[in-house]
């Protein structure tokens, strides 16, 4: 009886494996910003799915069945890398049984590999919280990084899907032009932010702060991924009296309570930044993400 069952399973297996694959390249991006970038570069040649949405903490995702199914039928996985997805992506990739998208294969792309990482820890100890050994993984908050990653991603798409290499190249050129123009605009508008002291909820913005010249006085989280306690926040309030910050920055997916507590007492605004594509209704694509980020930062300055 069991051998019959196995035979039937095998028959089903080959029937399904023989199904024609869809024409577009299936891309599974782990986070919305890289899904948006893959859509910019791939356009109509790719079929992109984001594994997470902007309101999910990218550090804490389950290796859900839906993700395994999508990894199974993908030809390219666009991950952020720098251990951002270490809690779930390795499991999804292994469970999928898809040899083409395993780390080391052309079908596995890490955005962080194209960028020099900041805040590389000098010591590795879990007592320091949720430490990323490779450095701070939140590279998408600096548009210069987006451009670098776009170039690397276009090259990778051309490698995985050589038939459409010309299209990817043309899309990259078009995107780069638009992006550089937009960057010049953002930098002009954001000039008043240079040197402005801020607190951050989580160390989510070192790349953005570097780009805009914001001065991060510190993080509300005592350790990465650890919610601040009241004593720690009181300490920050004391520091705020000596070196006053102008605002508190918080990504949309994090808890509001700590930053609101401090904002109320220090009489400074809490600026909720979209952090990634879809983090606010206005941040519908990468351009919208930075338009909205800078608009909110400038509004926080008033």
């Amino acid at each position: 009886m069991l051998s019959k069952l196995i035979l039937r399973l095998a028959a089903l297996l080959f029937a399904l494996a023989a199904l024609p694959a869809s024409a577009a390249l299936n891309v599974l991006a782990t986070v919305p910003e890289w899904a948006a970038l893959a859509r910019e570069i791939g356009a109509d040649k790719v079929n992109v799915i984001a594994a997470t949405n902007a309101l999910q903490d990218p550090h804490r995702i389950d290796a859900k069945p839906s993700l395994i199914a999508r990894a199974r039928s993908s030809q390219l996985v666009v991950a952020n890398g720098a251990e951002l997805e270490i809690g779930w992506l390795p499991m999804v990739l292994r469970e999928s049984g898809n040899a083409a998208i395993q780390p080391g294969q052309p079908g596995y792309f890490e955005a962080a590999s194209a960028v020099r990482l900041r805040e590389v820890p000098t010591r590795l100890d879990r007592a320091d919280g949720d430490v990323h050994a490779g450095g701070n993984p939140h590279i998408q908050t600096d548009p210069r990084n987006i451009l670098t990653v776009a170039q690397a991603l276009a090259a990778r798409l051309a490698l995985v899907d050589p038939a459409n290499a010309e299209a990817y190249k043309a899309n990259l050129a078009r995107f780069s032009d638009r992006w550089k123009t937009a960057m010049a605009r953002w930098e002009l508008v954001a000039a008043p932010l240079r040197g402005v002291p801020v607190w951050v909820q989580h160390r989510s913005f070192p790349y953005m702060s570097d780009w805009l010249g914001l001065k991060e006085l510190g993080a509300l989280e005592p350790k990465a991924g650890v919610e601040p306690g009241s004593a720690h926040l009181a300490g920050i309030l004391e520091r705020q009296k000596v070196t006053p910050a102008r605002m508190i920055l918080r990504p949309a997916y994090t808890r509001a309570s700590a930053s609101e507590w401090l904002g109320e007492r220090a009489h400074i605004p809490v600026v909720v930044l979209p952090f990634t594509v879809g983090g606010s209704p206005e941040a519908g694509d990468l351009f919208g993400l930075f338009d909205e980020t800078i608009r909110r930062l400038l509004a926080g300055l008033k």
Binding site: L13, I68, R70, R72, S73, G97
Partner: peptide, 15 residues
């Protein structure tokens, strides 16, 4: 032996 079907719905078979 395990096999995941290349479908949108997650389907896994094993023996």
């Amino acid at each position: 032996v395990r096999w995941v079907a290349p479908t949108e719905l997650f389907m896994e078979f094993g023996a």
